[in-house]
């Protein structure tokens, strides 16, 4: 499934124009990205939470050369699926 499939479902099923559905879906993901970029948590009930975590710098090793390197601290995004999503994956047959 791609963004185009999500958009198609919305204009077929819900009866918005293709343009409207496209604009709103694009805006939806853009708004979420903007919030995450600011380090904000995004909670979508029935789907899951997107959380930004800070990683401290740590020492690592280049597995090929054995050389010690510093892995820089950074911010990463994690997704925690909701109970509803987890249950949905294990009840509907594929």
């Amino acid at each position: 499934m791609t963004k185009a499939d999500i958009i198609a479902r919305i204009y077929e099923k819900v009866g918005f124009s293709k343009k409207e559905a496209t604009d709103v879906v694009e805006a939806t993901f853009e708004i979420i990205k903007g919030r995450l970029e600011k380090g904000e948590k995004v909670k979508i009930s029935g789907f899951g939470n997107f959380v930004v975590n800070s990683k401290r710098p740590r020492k690592g090793r280049n597995p090929q050369t054995g050389e010690e390197i510093v892995i820089v601290g950074r911010r990463v995004l994690t997704f925690k699926p909701s109970q509803i999503l987890k249950k949905g994956l294990n009840s509907i047959s594929s």
Binding site: I6, V24, T28, I44, F47
Partner: peptide
């Protein structure tokens, strides 16, 4: 629209589909 976005994603994953 927003509910449909996430519902369609849950459905797709329910069918084992990759998004």
């Amino acid at each position: 629209i927003i509910n449909s976005v996430f519902d369609s994603m849950v459905d797709a994953m329910g069918h084992g589909e990759r998004i």
